[in-house]
Design a protein around this nucleic acid. Structure first.
Lengths: 119, 119
DNA sequence: CTATTTCGCAACCGATCGGTTGACGATGAC
DNA sequence: GTCATCGTCAACCGATCGGTTGCGAAATAG
């Protein structure tokens, strides 16, 4: 299957699944309890829970049939770290742009420019 | 169409699109430049760019045919805020759980824990 | 014990997705 | 002007998705 980040983002792309997470952030719940507010079948909600579970967003350490679904908050750190990479890289880029503009400003001498390329 | 958050998450669920964002965080690029490293057609990459654009993750303020694609970093704030909601709510929940456990410890008349959540 | 409830599995359906090929319009070079 | 290049639009294809129905297994209620 796809990598974890893809699974996480795909799981969050559905409003119903995001609502499930919102409710699970308040308290654990069984599939039946989770399905109650919606007008879809229990099986559909069961599938949603399965998707969230495959993405590592929820867990069900129970053994019984009515085991509750539990939110796994650690996975959000993965996303946060991914997002932060872009924020930092974007800032870095703007810094580089400023440096280039400054260099162009006093570009009288053709010396070796800071050709630092990030691998 | 779906709400913005769903569009953003769905756009990020594809590894190729995430790679496009990674490269765009370094520098703007045209569709042709973006398509070069991949072994897919330029039409496929054009579609990917379209998806990113509909999600608000990139923009193309140009008018010409070879207008460059530009990363829009602000949308990441939307995600960060959404994720932070869950982090805070999860912490809040653990605080509540501690309070419940303390109350149960104090009030030892009923051995069965309050499995009924406050409806 | 039997009966009921809860939930997962499998099959199916329409819609969407990621990709292709082909044709087309608009830009830019000559 | 002509012509090649770049990018998008359109149609199509296989795979996946969100949803349903139906069935069955396991835990609970009586």
């Amino acid at each position: 299957m796809a990598d974890e980040l893809s699974r996480v983002f795909a799981a969050l792309a559905d409003p119903t699944r995001r609502d499930l997470l919102a409710r699970l952030s308040v308290a654990d719940a069984t599939v039946g309890q989770l399905a109650a507010p919606y007008h879809v079948t229990v099986q559909a909600v069961s599938k949603h829970v399965r998707v969230l579970q495959d993405a590592g967003l929820v867990s069900r350490d129970g053994h019984s049939h009515r085991r509750p679904v539990h939110l796994e908050a650690e996975v959000f750190d993965l996303m946060t770290r991914w997002i932060e990479r872009y924020r930092l890289q974007a800032e870095e880029r703007y810094r580089r742009l400023d440096a280039v503009l400054a260099a162009m400003d006093d570009d009288a001498e053709n010396t070796n420019p800071p050709r630092q390329e990030s691998a």
